[in-house]
């Protein structure tokens, strides 16, 4: 961009304002702004802790129910990005399901599995194998993943009752306790 704008070799010494100079500086600033914004995004992730998760994100689960982020206020929501081709997701699958069965009766916690770039048959096989009962749906068009700017799977995000992000975990949970502690913390807020 600034490559060609700088090629204005007109000196235009008489004029007070040199349009070439204006263009060059404008181009440079625009470039820096773009890169700066992007860098900021890269550094803090798509949604930072404390940010409100966009309300219009929605996912339709494999069994046909639609969940919209904005409609889930009043519940602590655990968002788990996973995929059937992901090996480390399997490490946490059992613990996640156990945690879900612990919290489900309370009614104020929802687990939502977001199947990241996957094929449906393989995903269903995976869900059946680990006997996962909380709702799971494909992340269509990777909307969720791009919003959160995930760097891989598994990644888990916990949203509090006001819809703010309070916790994020890159990589698999090591134990059931870790999951329970994180949710309890979110509930107490």
């Amino acid at each position: 961009m600034n490559a060609t704008e700088t090629q204005t070799p007109e000196p235009t010494p008489k004029k007070r304002i040199s349009w070439g100079a204006v263009a060059v500086w404008g181009g440079l600033i625009a470039l820096l702004v773009i890169v700066g914004l992007m860098l900021n995004r890269t550094q803090r992730g798509g949604v930072a802790i404390g940010d409100t998760v966009p309300a219009d994100l929605e996912v339709t689960s494999f069994d046909g129910t639609t969940y919209r982020m904005g409609d889930l206020r009043g519940k602590v929501v655990l968002l788990n990005f996973w995929a059937s081709w992901c090996t480390t997701c399997k490490d946490e699958a059992v613990a996640l399901e156990q945690a879900w069965r612990m919290f489900q009766p309370q009614g104020d916690v929802l687990f939502l599995g977001l199947d990241y770039v996957d094929t449906e048959p393989d995903a269903l096989v995976y869900l059946a194998r680990y006997d996962i009962t909380y709702p799971n749906g494909p992340d269509k068009g990777t909307r969720w993943a791009q919003t959160f700017r995930i760097s891989g799977v598994p990644e888990t995000y916990i949203v509090d009752k006001e819809g703010r992000l309070v916790y994020k975990k890159i990589g698999p949970f090591q134990s059931l306790n870790e999951i329970v502690a994180a949710i309890q913390q979110a509930l107490e807020k």
Partner: peptide, 23 residues
């Protein structure tokens, strides 16, 4: 410079797209 412009734009465009469209 023409090739440079095209290549530079090609490198920078995905960044721009992610900023503007979120995709």
């Amino acid at each position: 410079m023409g090739i440079l412009v095209v290549s530079f734009w090609g490198v920078i465009f995905p960044i721009l797209s992610e900023l503007v469209t979120g995709q």
